[in-house]
């Protein structure tokens, strides 16, 4: 890593840590921004890098929420009794019980979602192109409907989680750092993963899966592992969201296919798919755009958002980084170089 790059990363890290203290009124907004960044980066792992456009990643978000809730509650009380007594009954959680439940629940959500990605992937990775998108969307919608009819986890009313033992402002800071920490770990993980053979393998699947098979790649294995890794992180942020929201219900919050489920795709398209920074830049732009329209153009916010999606999908498919790559290919390492030049300045 060059010195400039190291300085940039340290500066970013300082900014990330300082942000909730510099902008104390925006803690929840910043936490949501991290959520957008994480779901976009993970969507890009399959959608951008591997060419499998999943519309069902929201399944892992919703499932993560429920798994985290069930684990956190189940460690102390009987889940059925707890949800049955909605509003009534008295269920107290000590500080220890809260934090143990939270951490075990969040990690459990990630692990459960990774395993379910293997199972769902096994069934859906035979589908290609738009059929995969529709197939995965179907899984997410079906899951939402099933869960909303499952009384043990609260049915359509959803679940209420224990409340953070401390003041509300500290709670917001705590949630911010949970999201930010996950995001930083994900970013470091992907910067490493995208330098390995693994990235080349999933890029090959994206460019021509039949060719990849003919060259002997274990295509299904790569696809399953990629989706499981993405699902792990989505499950984790689902779990964090569950504790952030305290109460959530299945259709509008957990398996929110038309909101977050679509937003993550738009973020990636806006920033530029198949790149490390594209989804991050896209998520920031999208989140700012969304918040500005929600605040200043209330009543027209969905129209503005729809227009943004249409313009991005129709005229700007390669996103910001894709456009930059077209204008400045040399910034992305595209060059013609003969042997003398190669000796003079050896490639990395």
């Amino acid at each position: 890593m060059s010195a400039q790059k190291a300085i940039l990363y340290v500066a970013l890290l300082v900014l990330i840590v300082a942000a909730p203290f510099l902008f104390p009124d925006y803690k929840t907004q910043l936490a949501t921004l991290w959520l957008m960044i994480i779901v976009s980066l993970t969507w890009d792992m399959t959608g951008g890098q591997m060419g499998y456009n999943s519309l069902g990643n929201i399944f892992f978000y919703g499932t993560g929420m429920y798994v985290a809730a069930v684990i956190a509650i189940g460690m102390v009380y009987d889940v059925g009794e707890y949800t049955n007594a909605f509003g009534g009954g008295k269920f107290d959680f000590t500080d220890d019980q809260y934090f143990t439940g939270l951490f075990v629940g969040i990690i459990g959500a990630g692990v459960f979602c990774a395993l379910s990605a293997f199972a769902i992937g096994w069934l859906t990775f035979g589908l290609r192109g738009p059929y995969f998108a529709i197939g995965t969307l179907g899984v997410a919608i079906a899951a939402g409907e099933l869960v909303s009819n499952w009384d043990w986890v609260g049915g359509g009313q959803g679940i209420a989680l224990p409340v953070y033992p401390g003041d509300f402002d500290n709670f917001k800071t705590f949630i911010y750092f949970l999201f930010a920490g996950t995001g930083v770990v994900l970013f470091i993980f992907l910067s490493w993963l995208y330098q390995t053979r693994f990235r080349a393998a999933i890029n090959a699947i994206r460019d021509d899966e039949e060719k990849a098979e003919a060259m002997g790649l274990h295509t299904l294995r790569y696809k399953l592992v990629t989706w499981a890794m993405a699902a792990f992180f989505v499950g984790i942020v689902g779990g964090i969201s569950a504790f952030q929201l305290i109460h959530f219900e299945p259709l509008e919050t957990a398996y929110q296919t038309i909101n977050l489920g679509i937003f993550m795709v738009v973020c990636v398209l806006l920033g530029g798919k198949g790149t490390l920074w594209g989804p991050i830049i896209g998520a920031i732009l999208f989140h700012v755009f969304k918040e500005v329209t929600w605040n200043y153009f209330l009543g027209w916010q969905w129209v503005a958002l729809g227009a943004l999606i249409v313009v991005t999908v129709v005229y700007f498919q390669d996103g910001l980084l894709g456009w930059l790559r077209l204008k400045k290919p040399e910034w992305f390492g595209v060059r013609v170089e003969n042997k003398q030049q190669a000796v003079a300045e050896p490639a990395e």
Binding site: R197, A200, A201, N203, A204, R206, D207, D208, E210, K211, A212, A214, M215, L217, G274, G333, V334
Partner: peptide, 15 residues
Amino acid sequence: RIYGAMNCVENMLIS
């Protein structure tokens, strides 16, 4: 059939 969005070196390395 090649991997069109990757450069030649990347095409070679995944082969």
